[in-house]
Simulated assay, not measured.
Amino acid sequence: MNPCGTPDDTGLLLTSADVRRLAADIGLRPTKTLGQNFVVDAGTVRRIARASGVGSDDTVVEVGPGLGSLTLALLARAGHVTAIEADPDLAEALPGTVRRRAGALAGKLDVVTADALRVTRLPGPEPTAMVANLPYNVAVPVVLHLLELLPSLRHVLVMVQSEVADRLAAAPGSRTYGVPSAKAAWYAEVRRAGAVSRNVFWPVPHVDSGLVELRRRAPVATTASRAEVFAVIDAAFAQRRKTLRSALSAWAGSASAAEQALRAAGVDPGARGEALDVTAFARIAEHGPGG
């Protein structure tokens, strides 16, 4: 620890040259398919680790640790880190990188070689936090999957494409509010936690990124299941320009049945999905075909 009481990462974090050397050592050429854009700016890594708020009592899940830039910063703060990496070459190399740069921290790391969307259980202590740099094409499904799979997760901080960050954190009535916003709200209070320049990545992507913070909240009070509520959300936004009476007709069995469910839920059949919060979707689900 430094005199200010924060972890001392002097000589610990990867530089831009370190990242490129590690990639060359394993013959890695970053691919768009896997969304491989690695953070090469230590200042950004410090900022993310600090913003995550994790401490020695936390077990952190990191998805897509890549070459270990963020992993090292998290190990300096957290009690334990479980890193989920889909690329077997990266997963194999990560423990060695940690041993060489911070041998005393190596025992706090578990590496799981898997697609995060297919993970059904994790080794080690129950995770309390998730911190990750997520590829934009899987960001929302990964966040939702792990919030459902790991009820012990209390706090999530993810770096995602700026547009995805806007969608996750959008409030009802806004232009960007939709399926990701409503489903994330089922689990947590969500907010934008800052912007990240494209220039801190290698290779440099074509878009900027944003940080999104999710803090788990009390479950929505409803007799409907998560699957039932999510089915309403999906139907409401499948044709977002239509009124809910029309958009939910297939879900309810007919337009008249949809109107009946909406009125029973206290929702205007002429409204559109973007006007509703997750509790309204839950009320509709309670009066739907399975309610």
Rank of each mutant, 00 (worst) to 15 (best):
N2K: 14
C4V: 12
G5C: 08
T6I: 09
P7V: 14
D9R: 13
T10V: 04
G11S: 07
L13F: 13
A24V: 02
G27N: 14
T31F: 00
D41A: 06
A42D: 13
A49R: 04
S52D: 03
G53A: 08
D58E: 10
L72W: 02
L74Q: 09
H80L: 03
V81W: 03
A83D: 09
E85W: 05
P88C: 06
L90Q: 04
P95N: 09
A106K: 01
A106Y: 12
L109F: 11
V112M: 05
T113C: 15
R118Q: 15
T120N: 01
L122G: 07
P125H: 08
L134W: 07
V138M: 06
A139G: 11
L144G: 09
L146F: 07
V156K: 06
V160P: 00
S162N: 13
S162R: 15
D166A: 11
A171V: 05
A171W: 00
A171C: 00
G173I: 07
G173M: 04
P180D: 06
Y187W: 15
Y187P: 05
R192F: 00
N199A: 12
V204S: 02
P205G: 04
G210Q: 10
E213D: 10
L214D: 11
V220C: 08
T223H: 12
R226E: 14
A227W: 10
V229K: 10
A236R: 09
F237R: 12
F237H: 10
Q239C: 01
R240G: 11
K242P: 12
A250H: 12
S254W: 10
S256G: 05
A257D: 15
E259D: 14
E259Y: 03
V267H: 01
P269L: 07
A275K: 14
D277S: 02
H287W: 04
G288P: 08
